[in-house]
Design a protein around this nucleic acid. Structure first.
Lengths: 327, 327
DNA sequence: GTTAGCAATCGAGAAATTAGAGTGCTAGGA
DNA sequence: TCCTAGCACTCTAATTTCTCGATTGCTAAC
């Protein structure tokens, strides 16, 4: 258990290091607290023994360890109000009612990336409350059709299908079947219904029913699949901890790997902080994320920055966005 | 006018520098040509006087100047055959008939970015041969509609429209009007027809006809507008000429500026090379681009790399792709 | 428990040193 | 007239040395 003084020293070192990115020495602290630098040094030694602080070399000032950051965000961090300016910038997005949710998310995270200099990720999927409204098929060429799917929440998706050996009549019949039988089904359950309710029926009257079934299956898999987008990637370049090209390459490659990013999904309803090795992204970054849920969509938004990150500000911003989206 | 020997020296310096990224000295050349280093030095001096070569410092080897590269690509470059391996990689994309053109383009440029370590840009627009086939409107909420536009070439686009103060009847009438009057119009002319043939008619029977007209206008502007995509951006990081963070930031920002990228459009039907200051992108890069045109789409593909670029290989690859796409 | 004093440690940057690659020039030879 | 061997000169890049200043840990006294 830390004493009050140890806590304030740790807090100072973390905030100061976040601000200046230079190891913090005892002198800087003793100016603000009312005691000598020697006293601070003794305390710092103890904090180092506890694994909360680190030195970059024998005679350097102290830097927070991952454990130190963790202690800070768990016990010491104070959430201040968002600045009026920041709120104002974000409001312009939320007040634009003609935007689709995914646009709102991307734009507001662009703003956040802008004001924080960190990088954001939006991972969204169609929510369970989003139900199939209708499917439509337009022939465009021999054996080539376009399927257009609309949900009751106004989400539209289309996909080109190639169905050789199936007549247009058969396709239309199948479409009617889908519209009659599974309209109203939550979008994430459509694939299953397609398999158990549609497939057996068309198997009876369509010769190449496998082809047709697979084509529709692909369409619905597509529409219910997750979508991930990275915003403000270049901000990585703004932080001195990412100043060598191979590190940059490393992080950029990870940010480009959409499949991997889909794993950042957060179930938990809080705002969660993963510092360094606590996240799977990269040991040199911190990730702050939260999920969101509306009738149309659900997903996760995440902010990525160096471990020396302005934790309280980011938490505040995510909290604000989450509340705005969820209404 | 250059002598034969000067040309081969220039050619050697360019190819060698492209390969090794180090200033080329007289010794390296005189080993391959049959004469002494002093002779080469004399020739190099003349080439430098002509502005074709440069030195990085008084006693360094020579580096091609922009003019030197220009002379190389105009007069000295030989186009070799593509390697079987490269062709094989690309063929897998072109043989997949179920892909839409934009996917084919993006995938094949991904492959090119991969094998060359350069960055690609695809700028595509709907071609004039792409005609409006039908428009469909699906209501999803009060005052919120989704317009779905399909062209005869199988391009589908949708957009959410907000039309307060307009009844569903009025919308449907307008849709019928569009379907009756302007179906078959090339997609890049729809906006104009909308203004002169539809707008005057609906003005008569729809009170809020401005709102309705604007909504449709937006939909069609959207569908006929250009789309730009950057592939292999991280490859920028692989070249030593882009090793400092601010340069990287600079180029990345430009590659993110979609509006600016739309200006790279190439009208000319050849494969065009823009070296250094010849392009608007960045004085340290070279851009090689060409246009393409099919019944569905037309646009430009471009490869961006350092001035020290493998010009012949890239020209070959672009040529191959262009031929494949245009069939 | 706190503090002043002090030797010791280390990084960061400046200055000096060295090795090597390459040049330009000159003078003699084909 | 063109080519080349030889040589002094230039500059880079890498290595080493030196110095400055910040900061520490320890000790002894308050």
């Amino acid at each position: 258990m830390l004493t009050k003084r140890q806590e304030s020293i740790l807090k100072m070192i973390v905030t100061e290091y976040i601000k200046l990115a230079k190891p913090v020495g005892s002198k800087l602290i003793c100016d603000k607290l009312n005691c000598s630098s020697a006293t601070i040094r003794n305390e710092m030694m103890q904090l180092e023994d506890l694994g909360l602080l680190e030195k970059t070399h024998t005679s350097s000032g102290r830097v927070p360890s991952e454990k130190g950051y963790r202690y800070y965000v768990d016990h010491l961090m104070e959430l201040k109000e968002l600045s009026g300016e920041d709120v104002y910038k974000l409001e312009t997005v939320f007040q634009n009612s003609s935007l689709e949710l995914s646009d709102v998310l991307n734009r507001s995270l662009e703003i956040i990336s802008d004001i924080t200099s960190y990088t954001s990720i939006v991972l969204d999927a169609k929510s369970h409350d989003n139900k199939l409204k209708e499917i439509n098929v337009v022939p465009v060429d021999k054996d080539i059709l376009i399927a257009i799917v609309v949900t009751d929440q106004g989400v539209v998706e289309h996909k080109t299908m190639e169905v050789s050996g199936v007549s247009l009549e058969e396709v239309k019949k199948t479409v009617k079947l889908i519209n009659d039988l599974i309209v109203g089904t939550p979008i994430d359950e459509v694939s299953a219904k397609l398999e158990f309710e549609i497939k057996p029926v068309i198997a009876k009257y369509v010769k190449q029913h496998e082809i047709l079934y697979n084509a529709f299956y692909d369409v619905f898999t597509d529409i219910s699949s997750k979508n991930v987008n990275v915003v403000g990637k270049n901000n990585i370049l703004k932080h001195q901890e990412f100043s060598n090209v191979s590190k940059i390459n490393d992080i950029f490659s990870k940010l480009d790997n959409k499949e991997m990013l889909k794993n950042i999904e957060e179930k938990n309803n809080d705002i969660n902080i993963y510092i360094g090795h606590e996240n799977k992204m990269d040991p040199d970054v911190a990730v702050i994320k939260t999920n969101y849920k509306t009738s149309k969509d659900e997903g996760t938004i995440a902010i990525i920055g160096p471990k020396r990150m302005d934790y309280d500000k980011v938490v505040n911003l995510l909290d604000y966005i989450k509340k705005q989206i969820e209404g």
